[in-house]
Design a protein around this nucleic acid. Structure first.
Length: 277
DNA sequence: AAACAAACCTGTGCGC
DNA sequence: TGCGCACAGGTTTGTT
């Protein structure tokens, strides 16, 4: 579900609510959510501790704690973080609840792919090996056509597959790759290494522009309203989607062709056969 | 290296 | 109404 703009929106919501505050109670209702360590490890790692800051890298939320440890949250497909008044009825699938005085932070996740973990930053290489493998984050890191060219180099895989590869670029998911490729007028199945310099330039600009606009809009909430921010508000960027989920509808860019749906790497892919070459 | 499928889960929407 | 199936924003793992 959540891609970079949604995770960034959640990050900002946490920064405005629970950062700097002490956790006085930790409840874990589902072991699977803390599978990397254990229920007791999460309780011990968070009780009585303050969250000093919330950072984001790709789709990972990383929060340094005043204990010297860090908390990592990944929402995967259906995870949500919600801040609400303590005592409010918790939604179904609330697997972790942190109490901060009068407020609570809930990790809600129907599909249970998401996870919450407290780890030792000194041992991040062993405990959180995927973090070191993350590629460039187009919002946090310097990102331009040179950086993108490097990320796309050396592979003839479809450009969409490469954009989705978190080891090369961290943060793009299925919605935003399609939106970015459309705005850059590049077909999803072009071999990454075959893009011309002018196309790489367009693509790098599209990545920054789409992600910025999507963050500005608070992310995308699809018809199932799965994604909401920490206050339960929906995003609004779905109204600016030009291709995602629009198969058989007219292209809003050329107003002539019809948006098509295809599959790449097992993921639904939406594109305009006329605009994207 | 790369392409694919399966796996992890639950919910929803659709055709019949 | 109910049933079965396809499909879903992510990532890892195993198989050709």
């Amino acid at each position: 579900m959540p891609e970079l703009p949604e995770v960034e929106t959640v990050r900002r919501g946490l920064a405005d609510t629970i950062v700097g505050r002490r956790i006085d109670r930790v409840e874990v209702g589902r072991e699977r959510t803390v599978r990397r360590t254990s229920k007791q490890a999460l309780i011990d790692g968070l009780t009585g501790v303050s969250i000093m800051e919330v950072q984001r890298r790709g789709k990972y939320l990383l929060a340094p704690l005043d204990s010297g440890y860090w908390m990592m949250v990944h929402l995967r497909m259906s995870g949500r973080l919600l801040v609400a008044a303590a005592g409010t009825e918790r939604p179904p699938h609330t697997h972790v609840a942190l109490t901060f005085g009068p407020d609570e932070l809930w990790f809600v996740d129907p599909r249970t792919f998401g996870e919450v973990v407290v780890y030792d930053p000194e041992r991040a290489a062993e405990e959180m090996p995927e973090l070191a493998k993350l590629g460039v984050d187009p919002v946090v890191d310097r990102f331009d056509r040179t950086v993108l060219a490097r990320a796309l180099a050396g592979t003839s895989r479809p450009v969409k597959t490469v954009l989705l590869d978190q080891h090369r670029i961290a943060g793009l998911g299925n919605i935003y790759t399609d939106e970015v490729l459309h705005r850059a007028r590049v077909r999803f199945d072009r071999p990454a290494s075959a893009l011309r310099p002018v196309e790489i330039t367009r693509l790098s600009k599209a990545i920054v522009e789409v992600l910025s606009a999507a963050i500005e809009a608070g992310g995308s909430t699809l018809v199932d309203t799965q994604y909401v921010d920490v206050a339960g508000r929906t995003g609004e960027f779905q109204h600016q989607h030009l291709v995602y989920g629009r198969q058989d509808e007219g292209c809003l860019t050329c107003e002539k062709a019809v948006i098509r749906r295809s599959t790449v790497g097992g993921r639904s892919t939406f594109y305009c056969p006329r605009c994207q070459r």
